[in-house]
């Protein structure tokens, strides 16, 4: 018990002094997740918007596949990316395994289905509301997509935040493809796993606290967004 209390004290000390090792890990975490989310949103919003506007054979199948991918266990996804990037794998020549890029790739594959599915859900509702208006204007599908993405801007921001929340807290996939190498691919979640198993509870706790703060911040941002006057006014 005393040991845990002690660990808390050291953890707060690390946070207060902005310990260099701690900050390095936090920065890499943010960097990897933000890039991954940005790319996932570009891809996912496009997929979601296209699925909400275009009707074509096989559309339902794609929607089902996306929803299935959303439930894929991250470790399995990590394993697949590992096999692709490993030296003997099809993309081995790129030498990406155990780099931040590999972690970004894994996170993109992890979040894009989530972002696509949520985007589709948001846009379908808007499309239903605007359908007759769009058709009375004889809009092209592309014009519809552009309009829907802008009309749903606040909802899509929430989708992006949900993606970020998932990315920053994920551990299984990035552990496998990143390897948790100090000063190279060590991020918050993998560091917590490692430090805890080593018994260095202070650093693990400090990182855990930051992670919780991030996830609270993301949720607070979503809630603030929902209740902000600007969103209400356009509801």
């Amino acid at each position: 018990m005393e040991e845990i209390g002690n660990a808390f004290l050291i953890a707060f000390d690390l946070l207060r002094s902005r310990d260099a090792a701690l900050m390095e890990i936090v920065q890499l975490s943010l960097w990897v997740s933000i890039i991954a989310v940005a790319i996932s949103c570009i891809i996912g919003f496009f997929i979601g918007a296209a699925l909400s506007v275009y009707r074509f054979p096989g559309r339902k199948v794609i929607v089902v596949v996306i929803n299935a991918l959303m439930g894929l266990p991250p470790v399995v996804l990590g394993l697949i990316v590992y096999l692709l990037l490993s030296r003997s794998g099809p993309l081995g020549v790129l030498g990406l395994l155990y780099t931040p890029t590999a972690m970004i790739i894994a996170q993109i594959l992890l979040i894009t289905p989530l972002v696509s599915a949520l985007c589709l859900q948001v846009l379908e509702e808007f499309n239903r509301e605007y359908d007759e208006f769009f058709r009375s204007l004889r809009l092209t599908s592309l014009a519809k997509i552009k309009t829907l993405l802008w009309e749903a801007r606040f909802g899509l921001l929430t989708v992006g935040l949900a993606g970020f929340g998932r990315a920053i807290s994920e551990v299984g996939a990035v552990m496998i493809v990143g390897g948790n190498i100090n000063h190279a691919t060590r991020i918050m979640t993998t560091a917590i796993a490692l430090e805890t198993s080593k018994g260095t509870l202070a650093l693990a706790l400090a990182l855990g606290i930051i992670l919780i703060i991030f996830s609270i911040a993301v949720n607070a941002a979503v809630m603030a967004l929902r209740s902000s006057s600007k969103v209400q006014v356009h509801a």
């Binding site: 605007y130 007759e132 309009t147 009309e151 356009h234």
Partner: peptide, 8 residues
């Protein structure tokens, strides 16, 4: 329309 559809 009977219920106007306005953009946000």
């Amino acid at each position: 329309f009977q219920n106007p559809v306005l953009l946000r």
